[in-house]
Design a protein around this nucleic acid. Structure first.
Lengths: 238, 238
DNA sequence: TCGATGCTTCGTCCCGCGGCGAACCATCAC
DNA sequence: GTGATGGTTCGCCGCGGGACGAAGCATCGA
């Protein structure tokens, strides 16, 4: 009668295709009503209701009632991070490589991960910030912001000192599921994405999670960070 | 016909109790033969064989054949990270929620964990020690004490060099059950708690496990570590 | 060569869980 | 009030997959 480890339950909740689809639809951090999630998962409302109740009881989703609607959202970024971490586990590559469509390429290139920047652009930006000494990777999957980093961020209108740190600090290392390298997450990551969008350097696409780099953004990334995502080589060479 | 997201498969592999037990047995990073894992999971060898093959194909485990034995180990650090991340997701404790009274709050705030400091204060102190570079989180759930750290501890009358290391070293990372973050354990953790009590900065309460921070202690924590536990944001405040 | 050991494959049983239709409950509009 | 809409609960069905016994395959020791 070996008791199953605690993580098995959370894993079980994520394992079902319908539940996984709903979690996927919530990766942007926004809250959605149950019906919309049912449609996103391709199941009937009553089935979705059971799933959502389980995800809620399991601590994966937070729920808020508004009138006759029930809005669900991720219970926290630790859940989103678990999803990302799981997505980084890839089955042994069988002979054929999967065909990636246009949308897949766009997502790989630049997307949001919960509430911050991810994909190749997210990784390149983070890598540059570390390379320039603005961020320092420290223990416990965190980043530390250096003095020069604080100055750099303030040039973007981000006052690092006024950011409210969460339990896990102000800047976290989040494993990018497609690039298999860390990108910037946490309050600072969220604020950075916000700021880049405000400046018109990045633009949210109509497709969920897809982010576009504007021409002005491309110039700015090159100038301020020496990053040119269009020309960067793919990380996983083969 | 929505295709289920990629992470669902990895989650499914972790969701089964037997597979979870085997993964658990491999969290130390060492390789173990199939039979031993079967025993650890409490299942027959033939059942374990199927599970292990799936975990291997799914990219969670690496396999190595030696003679008639087959050794399995974690496929990489990213798998262990995913397990940890999932373990951090806890179902919301419905009944206990309302029962968390004064004593519960006190325990959450500051308590002993076996022989060392835990709770919010324990985590904040540890976080500060890492942030200041006195402790460095290294592999195998250990902390290393830096040069500056040794100096800092000696100012508290703790001679790091004379501490008798156990099998797992002198300073361990212990996952805090309420804060979901590591705090300092091991001989150094024990000694630190002892020292803070001796100086009158902390005081054991009459209730078991509860620790009180004295006014002098609050001042000292702020001065020496920049930590003010009374003002720190609530851990589970979203 | 022969038996012992470690692991896998095959065949079979059966429980758990996801799915939907129908009915029920709550809120909003009028 | 009535009807409409969003969400949940109930009941039943079907299937996927996890369990083990038995048999098969490979390697080691003598």
């Amino acid at each position: 009668m070996p008791e199953s480890p605690g993580f098995a339950h959370a894993a079980w909740l994520m394992a079902d295709p319908a539940r996984a689809m709903m979690l996927m639809a919530l990766t942007d951090g926004r809250a959605r009503p149950a019906g919309e999630l049912a449609r996103a998962a391709g199941i009937t409302p009553q089935t979705a209701s059971v799933h959502l109740a389980r995800l809620h009881a399991g601590g994966l989703l937070a729920m808020e009632t508004q009138g006759r609607h029930r809005y669900y959202r991720m219970a926290g970024d630790h859940v989103a991070q678990a999803v990302e971490q799981l997505a980084a586990i890839r089955p042994l590559p069988q002979p054929a490589r999967t065909v990636v469509g246009r949308k897949g390429r766009l997502l790989r290139h630049c997307r949001t991960c919960y509430d911050h920047l991810a994909g190749r652009v997210g990784v390149l930006v983070t890598r540059a910030l570390v390379y320039q000494g603005f961020l320092v990777a420290v223990a416990d999957k965190r980043f530390e912001v250096s003095r020069s980093g604080a100055t750099w961020f303030s040039a973007l209108g981000i006052d690092v000192d006024t950011l409210r740190p969460t339990r896990r600090g102000i800047a976290r290392q989040c494993l990018d599921s497609t690039e298999r390298e860390h990108h910037l997450a946490g309050p600072l990551g969220r604020r950075l994405l916000e700021s880049l969008c405000d400046r018109g350097w990045l633009r949210r696409s109509r497709e969920p999670r897809v982010i576009q780099v504007t021409p002005a953004g491309r110039q700015a990334l090159k100038r301020y960070l020496g990053v040119d995502p269009e020309r960067a080589a793919s990380p996983h060479g083969q």
